[in-house]
């Protein structure tokens, strides 16, 4: 359990950023993951009063506040309308409604969990992260970096694409044993693989959306998989091309 000495409701991003420069501080988003972490910190910095829980539509992109909950994404008519329901499909298996009412998109991407459905979908969609200090960074880059003391403020998803996702879970609301997402923009397709079980990666970038099963199999083969308590390496290797094909087909359907 996380133990804090003081709990501060940040009133500006600058304040939150300044407080977070000390190693003895921690950012609190949905608190769903932090709750389970064994840590002792002096200062917990709550971001919930900063108005970062909005989904804004711009001409070329959706800009999603880091404190937007997974349930808001799942139920957003604007997002699901624009991207063929991919968020509803990807997020509805995560734990339960009450959980998704609180867990945030920021906490999900910032943590760079290997098992993240959220990061896998956003990666395929070419999303970028807006950090308070550093500015905009492509998720593809951010995903490979170590966590620093910056604050994620927004996630930007380019419009004009179709996306699909497919995952396999040992039981319905468990974390995924493997998840694949595909997105097609300007006639080119990206494919991302998560829960390998290592961090999600882009398996293919800018390929044809009409790849054959054999070509998808080749792409799947070039991804590194491992084993953990949810699935073995060999299982993931066998399942990956199937999930890729389903995610790609879902893009074509929407």
């Amino acid at each position: 359990m996380a133990i804090y000495q003081e709990y501060i409701m940040a009133s500006t991003l600058d304040e939150a950023y300044a407080l977070n420069q000390k190693k003895s501080a921690v950012i609190v988003a949905g608190n769903m993951w932090l709750r389970m972490c064994k840590m002792r910190k002096k200062t917990a910095i709550d971001l919930s009063a900063l108005g970062l829980d909005k989904i804004e539509e711009r001409e070329d992109a959706f800009v999603i506040g880091a404190m937007t909950t997974l349930r808001q994404l799942e139920k957003s008519e604007a997002l699901n309308g624009a991207f063929g329901g991919v968020f509803e499909k990807a997020l509805s298996p995560i734990v339960g409604t009450q959980f998704r009412n609180t867990a945030t998109v920021g906490g999900s991407v910032y943590s760079r969990f290997g098992f993240s459905d959220v990061s896998t979908v956003l990666l395929a969609m070419g999303a970028s992260m807006v950090l308070h200090k550093r500015g905009e960074v492509p998720l593809e880059v951010f995903q490979q970096e170590k966590p620093d003391r910056d604050i994620l403020t927004h996630v930007v998803i380019p419009k004009g694409q179709r996306a699909g996702v497919a995952s396999v879970r040992m039981s319905e609301t468990d974390i995924p044993a493997l998840v694949c997402a595909a997105a097609v923009r300007d006639g080119k397709m990206n494919i991302a693989v998560g829960a390998r079980p290592a961090r999600a990666v882009l398996a293919a970038k800018g390929v044809s959306p009409d790849l054959t099963a054999a070509e998808l199999g080749e792409i799947a083969q070039n991804v590194m998989y491992g084993g953990n308590m949810r699935a073995g390496k060999a299982y993931r290797e066998r399942v990956a091309p199937v999930l890729m094909a389903r995610a790609a087909a879902a893009c074509r359907e929407v």
Binding site: M1, N31, R35, N101
Partner: peptide, 23 residues
């Protein structure tokens, strides 16, 4: 106490949340 069971559900501003994990 790990956000998995739903036993601790209450409503916060009209939404069901897990009180074991809301600060």
């Amino acid at each position: 106490e790990t956000t998995n069971c739903g036993l601790c559900t209450v409503h916060m501003d009209g939404k069901a949340v897990l009180s074991c994990s809301v600060p």
